[in-house]
Write a protein that binds this DNA or RNA. Structure first.
Lengths: 129, 129
DNA sequence: CTGCACCTTCCCCTGTGGGGGAAGGTCAAG
DNA sequence: CTTGACCTTCCCCCACAGGGGAAGGTGCAG
């Protein structure tokens, strides 16, 4: 299969596949006599895995480390579990940060809504923010 | 005051002040005979306002629009209120997205934790993700 | 005179995951 | 023969808010 076909099957663009190859998520593709990349069905499976990892918010380098473990002959499950645990911790942190920010913004919003624009201190640009 | 002094008073770096000037958040500074930027106390007040806006997650261009309204002689309160409302909506959306992602990642994490690594399908890289 | 701390402009760099588009080769169909 | 759809490499581009550092001017103290 050519790159366009495979990328379509995986729901990606040819650019993305070349990028993944360059980033080490895909092994360097076999080339046809014309220099075109040649792919087998296994590539689609690998790309699906990559897509699942991306959907879980894993970075390219994290996914690369999983694939490297699999290539080394180990079941990468323990490593995947570690990465997902880290991802959960990061998500919890980000959600907490955004929630705190939201609270502060909500307070400012209330202050502005309750304020009197004509009493807004010009020298402070806006008294209520 | 020179740029270093003002930036310190505002808790910023000189680089940031030059950046804000370039971005139109600060008017072009008066220059001394040596070409150095000269600031008055009002600059610190303006920078404090900018910092409050940034702390509320407003972008540079949003803050610029507030300052432009104030410069045009209008109390920017209504505009500030609109921007904060938009910011709240964006934060709610982001929090919802991250929460949904977190749920998906948690489900994958449970699956990996409950799975048997030696039964992990090699051809799928990892059956549990 | 020499250091040192400050200032100036200028241009590139950061992280992330690709996208845009140029210049050129290849292949099958009409 | 040409058209169109592929493919190749190459290099630059995006958001975002600055940071790093070079090369050079300025001002004051010792």
């Amino acid at each position: 299969m050519l790159i366009g076909e495979v990328s379509k099957a995986a729901g990606m663009t040819p650019k993305t596949l070349r990028f993944y190859e360059e980033q080490g998520l895909l092994p360097p593709a076999r080339r046809g006599p014309n220099g075109y990349r040649q792919y087998g069905d296994d590539s689609v499976i690998r790309l699906d895995f990559i897509a699942r990892g991306r959907a879980a918010g894993l970075s390219v380098s994290q996914i690369r480390s999983i694939l490297a473990a699999r290539e080394a002959g180990n079941a990468p499950c323990a490593h995947v579990q570690d990465l997902l645990a880290g991802q959960l911790a990061e998500l919890d942190l980000k959600i907490a940060e955004l929630t705190a920010l939201r609270a502060g913004v909500a307070a400012s919003y209330e202050a502005v809504a309750a304020g009197n624009p004509s009493a807004c201190d010009q020298s402070r640009v806006c008294s209520y923010l």
